[in-house]
């Protein structure tokens, strides 16, 4: 689901409450596309409650107006990167990590993706670990929120989505579609079929690829996974493939096809 757009008046109230102005791309997405819902990682957090989700408590009044110190043009930060916040931050027991940022999504465990709202990187998207002394923040290549979100949409729809959430948005990630089609290792092809099928959007091109694997892959475990993934949200156009899979040489594939058709 994608939450309904946020009225401009509520965005303004949020900005006045915290003494900031949201980066224009994120602001226009909120007011015209939606607030929270389908997106990278576990989905976009709502502007209203991301602080409860991430921190379990409301943020301090000065949290968003305090600059996030890092800049994507600086050299890559080292393991002691958080000293950039200054000694007062390190000595403050109540200080939360990552001032000047809003959490956009969780990528599992303590891994989060943030939007910088104050500081030299304002408008940029950055991957972080809430255990701030474990991993240094890593800026994505995207110039702003809309580029980040659209890249996820493109990668998802075109089958570049993969299972590991912390690497799903790297530019250099090999397309899952190509792995399913071309990899010689059946275990890799199965991972690719699973990754493709997990995407929230299955475009006709991806359905066609999964369908080809379901009836044509030489390895039964790959055919079975492709059938299961197609069968999670089948469309009428998938029936032909699923019916053909009922006569597969492997009983496991036939069983998966039967369950998909019965579902």
């Amino acid at each position: 689901l994608l939450g309904p757009p946020m009225p401009e008046s509520r965005v303004v109230a949020f900005e006045e409450q915290y003494g900031i102005r949201l980066p224009p791309c994120y602001r226009s997405f909120l007011t015209t596309i939606g607030n929270g819902g389908i997106g990278p990682g576990a989905g976009l957090l709502h502007l209203d409650d991301w602080d409860y989700v991430v921190l379990g408590a409301p943020i301090r009044p000065d949290h968003l107006s305090t600059p996030f110190p890092l800049s994507p043009t600086d050299p890559a930060p080292g393991p002691d990167w958080y000293h950039a916040f200054g000694p007062a931050w390190l000595d403050d027991d109540d200080a939360e990590p990552y001032p000047g940022t809003i959490a956009l999504t969780t990528r599992g465990c303590s891994l989060y993706t943030l939007l910088v709202v104050t500081g030299p990187a304002r408008g940029r998207v950055v991957d972080v670990n809430l255990e701030f002394d474990v991993d240094a923040p890593s800026f994505t290549h995207d110039t702003d929120f809309l580029d980040w979100y659209e890249r996820w949409l493109d990668q998802t729809g075109n089958g570049m989505h993969s299972a590991p959430p912390d690497v799903a948005l790297r530019d250099d990630e090999p397309p899952m579609a190509a792995i399913l089609r071309d990899a010689s290792d059946p275990a890799l092809r199965e991972v690719a079929a699973r990754g493709l099928g997990r995407a929230p959007i299955l475009t006709p091109a991806v359905r066609s690829l999964l369908g080809a694997a379901a009836v044509g892959d030489p390895a039964p475990e790959v055919r079975r996974t492709a059938v299961i993934m197609l069968g999670r949200r089948p469309t009428p156009s998938d029936d032909d493939v699923l019916v053909r899979a009922l006569t597969d040489a492997s009983a496991d594939v036939r069983e998966a096809a039967l369950q998909a058709l019965a579902g």
């Binding site: 997405f29 493109d154 959007i201």
Partner: peptide, 18 residues
């Protein structure tokens, strides 16, 4: 904004699934 319109169009299949 052209990018917002493009994103809305790309999100359309998601809405179709609901």
């Amino acid at each position: 904004d052209a990018r917002l319109r493009r994103i809305a169009a790309k999100l359309a299949p998601v809405r179709d699934l609901l």
